[in-house]
């Protein structure tokens, strides 16, 4: 498997699950949210970006085939 793809797949998991022990605080409040909630909300755009890039890479490959 392509290492870039592996990294793109793992980023959302590391962000959300792997980093959890380090982000379990209320302060600072960011964009009106407690820090833990803000961090977990970031999972959403991060997954979106990673999947968009993966999709671009995959559809590019299919066209070549």
């Amino acid at each position: 498997m392509n290492p870039v793809k592996v990294i793109l797949t793992l980023i959302p998991f590391v962000w959300t699950i792997g980093m959890l022990p380090f982000v379990n605080t209320v302060k600072p409040i960011v964009f009106g949210l407690p820090f833990l909630a803000f961090w977990l909300c970031c999972t959403i755009p991060i997954s979106f970006i990673c999947l968009s890039i993966l999709y671009k890479m995959d559809s590019g490959k299919n066209e070549e085939e």
């Binding site: 797949t9 959302p12 998991f13 959300t16 699950i17 379990n24 407690p34 833990l36 909630a37 977990l40 909300c41 999972t43 959403i44 991060i46 997954s47 979106f48 990673c50 999947l51 993966l54 999709y55």
Partner: peptide, 20 residues
Amino acid sequence: GGPTFYILGYGALAYVVGYY
């Protein structure tokens, strides 16, 4: 309180799994 926030994270991760 806090434990509720897990709900924000799981769906996005599930779609990464679903993508494959």
